[in-house]
Amino acid sequence: MANVQQGGFKRVWFITGASRAIGALIAEAALADGNAVVAAGRKVGAISERLGESAALLPVELDVTNEAQAKAAVQAAIEKFGRIDVLVNNAGFGLLGAVEESADNEVRRMYDTNVFGLLNVTRAVLPIMRANRSGHVINVSSIGGYRAAAGFGVYSSTKFAVEGITEALHAELRPLGIRATVVEPGYFRTDFLDASSLVVAPEVIDDYDETSGAVRRKAMQLNHNQPGDPTRLAAAMIALVDAASPPLRLPLGTDTLAAIAAKNAYVTQETETWKQLSYSTDFAA
């Protein structure tokens, strides 16, 4: 590993989906904070164009659905910087439409990226972190990863999977000195609601007009008017990694905080209402 450059860097970050939007902003914030960044994406040229040239930056080609590419990208990171301290699984896209309107090919493609792609990269990075007995795995979920809603049901299901994976990683990795956090952004003013990040189901079923149909219309109105500031989100990621005791979950945005509170209240009320039937299913004492 003759090209290893370890000196002077606060940490080495590996960020997927780093060519634009939140991924690029996180990469910029990490570089400005004195870190080295492995910026991974499908188009290396777009990464270099966005982030420029720096001894602290390694752009790598990575389609997260390709496990061999994930391993090669991690190997390139080790050859360049000698370690990976922070993994940010950010690559992903959304699907807008009722569950019944969501086509099989689009659902499978989204799972391949949002879930199986995340697992490909995580499996490639974890041996490095385990060997060093340190590291931080950050999986980017969503407001929809805690609370599903009409119109984003299948997308939310992928983020529910990310939440479950991260909970298990938190338990498995903590004894090894490795942290795991799932970040839950609300609506931030990025291109997530554009065609570049969001697939809109072409089939429209009139019976869902008041539910998922209303969400389709609202999403178009909200596009580029979201309440969250993506630059502040990137800064929050630096604060998260710097924290002495980072959380398992980090909601970002007042809309996510409100959604979590509403769901928790609903679950508490419903559990209380049905607890006698729940109790009744144990073997009799």
Rank of each mutant, 00 (worst) to 15 (best):
L96E: 05
V99Y: 12
V99H: 15
E100D: 15
E101V: 09
A103T: 15
A103W: 13
D104I: 15
D104F: 15
N105E: 15
R108Y: 10
M110D: 03
Y111V: 02
D112Y: 00
T113R: 05
T113K: 08
V115K: 09
V115T: 15
G117R: 02
N120S: 09
V121Q: 06
R123W: 10
A124S: 14
V125G: 07
L126C: 08
L126K: 02
L126W: 08
P127W: 10
I128T: 10
M129T: 02
M129R: 03
R130G: 02
R130E: 08
A131T: 02
N132H: 13
N132Q: 15
N132M: 14
N132W: 13
S134T: 13
G135V: 06
H136E: 03
V137D: 01
I138V: 10
N139S: 05
V140K: 07
G145N: 04
Y146F: 09
A148R: 11
A149V: 14
A150H: 10
A150C: 07
F152V: 07
V154P: 10
Y155G: 07
S156K: 00
S157D: 13
T158S: 12
K159V: 02
A161P: 05
V162I: 12
A168T: 11
A168E: 04
H170A: 09
H170Y: 04
L173N: 07
R174V: 13
R174F: 14
P175M: 09
L176N: 11
L176K: 11
G177W: 06
G177H: 03
T181P: 06
T181F: 00
V183H: 12
E184R: 01
G186N: 00
G186H: 07
Y187N: 13
Y187S: 15
F188K: 01
F188H: 15
R189D: 13
T190R: 11
L193W: 01
D194S: 00
S196F: 07
V199E: 04
V200T: 05
V200Y: 04
V200R: 05
I205K: 14
D207H: 14
D209G: 05
V215Q: 11
R216V: 01
R217V: 08
K218H: 10
A219Y: 00
Q221P: 03
Q221W: 03
L222Q: 05
P227Y: 04
D229T: 10
R232T: 11
A235W: 10
I238D: 07
I238H: 03
L240C: 11
